[in-house]
Design a protein around this nucleic acid. Structure first.
Lengths: 218, 218
DNA sequence: ATAAATATTTAGACAAGTCTAAAAAATGTT
DNA sequence: AACATTTTTTAGACTTGTCTAAATATTTAT
């Protein structure tokens, strides 16, 4: 059994892990969790003793197989709860994160199994992120940042990179939500802004926004 | 804001408080929470500093108004989650307690408000216990222990006193659930057992069982 | 009313998780 | 290669919530 704190560390390492990087740095984890590097060192040593991360001094951390499974399960719970909050309790997608952050630590395999069933076995959370299955497997969807599309290419909005409340509220205000069809009408070389068509109307999108929206090309 | 541990103490005192008794003893709280009396003393002092309990050395504890409100809200959350687990996720009434014990600590007023709405503003949990309203008010229902009914009196099963998993499973096995109509056919003076009619059939019920079942007389 | 039993509190210790400040190792720069 | 900078670790301290053992207060029984 893992404490909430241990679970948070595992989840942070999981999220910081990408195909390329081999070891996650102490500093990166500290920043993600808003703690100090020295605290990270302590916790990492503990998790290493429990065989859920592998760790060599000064070399960074990575999850072991069992650690990855545990972390994926926490992410699974987080995302299922987000779906519940949005679909059943009518939260908006920018309100769910903090509550899901608490709910993900509830320990009850049956609860998650039944919740999954109750929600109709969803495969994505309200931000378009994939929900790991019971064995911790994540199926990644073919997705590209809006900023990588060329002129006249189009697709469907399937996710966000930054899921901060501010960004999500901004998107809501503009009428940009998951599932919306988007076409790139113009790319402005000067400031990398885009003119897109969405909801049958033209809209100008800054570079920053385009860098945070995922599109599934059609 | 109160820690989970603080919340558990407040809830324990709330449950131990009855109309008669004025102060709850250190030992009673320790037993309820499966801790040691010395730990209780420490925590009580802390809660007293926070003005949620009033406390005089060697005299026992009682909740202040604000403490009572906080405790009632925790009970409210606990019972709403129990309803959710049974009605939406098909848990049986003996499985909900441990999970609700965790869920009751989730902090989000909106979550509880929406959950309440989603469940249709229930007034009782799956064991027949009343759900406090948002202001912490409990409306008590006119209820009597089955063991206090006389021969030929009848009513509806509306709750249990002991909600341990064993007892609830026992009741399930006998087909005794909330809402069932029960009539006392015979009272055995010898061992205080009862012969009742339920589900159109006769059944013998021991004193112990009759002391743990609440009936609303009809 | 005094002794025995019980209940409560105090004192001191410990584990988990965090922090600050300082030391050590690795990396970058000239 | 030598120095400066950054990253990471160590050492020691603090908080929360718990415990054991001992001291003190209260209650019960004779």
């Amino acid at each position: 059994m893992f404490s909430q704190s241990e679970e948070n560390y595992l989840k942070a390492i999981f999220h910081l892990t990408t195909a390329e990087k081999k070891g996650i740095s102490t500093n990166a984890i500290a920043e993600k969790l808003a703690t100090k590097p020295s605290s990270v060192t302590d916790m990492i040593r503990k998790l290493s003793d429990k065989k859920v991360v592998s760790y060599k001094k000064y070399y960074g951390v990575s999850l072991t197989n069992s650690g990855r499974k545990i972390a994926a399960n926490i992410v699974r719970k987080h995302r299922l709860w987000e779906v519940f909050l949005v679909e059943k309790l009518h939260f908006s997608w920018d309100e769910v994160h903090d509550v899901a952050e608490q709910l993900e630590h509830i320990q009850s395999p049956k609860l998650i199994q039944q919740l999954d069933h109750f929600l109709g076995f969803p495969t994505q959370d309200p931000h378009g992120d994939p929900i790991p299955d019971q064995d911790g497997n994540l199926k990644t969807i073919e997705k590209r940042l809006l900023s990588t599309l060329l002129k006249n290419e189009a697709g469907v909005c399937i996710g966000v990179d930054d899921s901060s409340s501010e960004f999500l509220k901004f998107l809501d205000k503009r009428g940009i939500t998951l599932g919306k069809h988007i076409k790139v009408l113009e790319k402005e070389a000067f400031d990398d802004s885009l003119i897109i068509e969405i909801n049958q109307q033209k809209m100008t999108i800054s570079k920053k926004i385009a860098n945070n929206l995922y599109i599934q090309k059609s």
